[in-house]
Amino acid sequence: MTTLTLHATGPVGPDEAWERYAVPARWADWAPQITGVELPVARLVAGVRGRVRGPLGVTLPFVVDAVDEAARQWAWTVSAGPVRLHLVHWVAEGPDGGSTTGLRVTGPAPVVVGYAPLAHLAIGRLVRPLS
């Protein structure tokens, strides 16, 4: 297993960046690899199971492992057959205003390394105004 940590800082405030995470219906607004989310709740909650839709109609099951609203942090595990990725996301105040978001991805090295550029693009969009 390999773990990789990514960060992005931008002008969007931490409360707004957190809401973009906490409301899965908003994920497709900033994450280009996500075209939709199937989830029985409107807001992240630990233990909930759902499916995330990607390009070409690919859907992957996931479970939300933990949510800490006060700390603006959450974790989930996404499965693709026998491959599992564990992702931990957090949002903090940026050093000069705005916010900084972090993502720690753990999984098989080829998958983690292959996913990193797209994940970095997505978290960069999370902390920037949406057009």
Rank of each mutant, 00 (worst) to 15 (best):
V63T: 15
P108W: 09
H86R: 15
L39F: 07
P110T: 08
G57N: 11
W90I: 00
R43E: 13
G10A: 09
Y21I: 09
A66V: 01
A80P: 04
R125L: 11
A71K: 09
P110M: 08
H86Q: 14
T3Y: 03
L126C: 05
V88Q: 13
V67G: 03
W76Y: 14
V67D: 01
T35Y: 01
G50I: 03
T77C: 05
V112A: 05
R104V: 08
Q33F: 15
A46C: 05
L6R: 07
E69Y: 10
L6K: 06
W30H: 01
V111G: 02
G124L: 02
A122W: 01
T59N: 07
P117Y: 06
P110V: 05
E38H: 14
G50Q: 10
D96P: 00
D29P: 03
G57V: 03
W90L: 08
V127G: 02
D65V: 05
W90P: 00
L130T: 14
I34S: 06
T106A: 13
A22D: 10
H89K: 11
G124M: 03
A71E: 11
W90A: 13
P24N: 08
S131W: 06
L118A: 15
T5Q: 12
L4N: 06
A122D: 04
P110Q: 04
D96A: 15
D65N: 15
R51V: 00
T9Y: 10
H120N: 11
L126F: 07
G50Y: 02
G36T: 03
V48R: 04
A71P: 03
D68Q: 12
P14K: 08
W18A: 06
R20K: 11
V63R: 14
L87C: 11
S131C: 02
R20P: 02
T2Y: 11
V37Q: 09
P55G: 14
A31L: 07
T77P: 07
L85Q: 12
R26Y: 10
D65C: 06
Q73Y: 08
G13T: 01
Y21V: 04
A119K: 03
R49I: 00
E69S: 09
P117G: 08
A8D: 05
P129N: 10
P40E: 04
V12R: 03
Y115K: 00
P24D: 08
L60P: 00
M1A: 14
T59F: 07
P14G: 05
D96V: 09
A31Q: 11
W76S: 09
G47S: 09
P32V: 10
L118H: 15
G10R: 08
V64D: 06
V37Y: 09
A119H: 01
G97Y: 11
A28K: 13
Y21S: 09
L130G: 14
A25K: 13
I123H: 04
I34W: 07
A25C: 10
R72Q: 12
A71R: 14
V127I: 01
F62N: 00
L121Q: 12
G94T: 01
E69T: 08
F62C: 07
R128T: 13
A42F: 05
H86V: 12
V105P: 03
P40D: 12
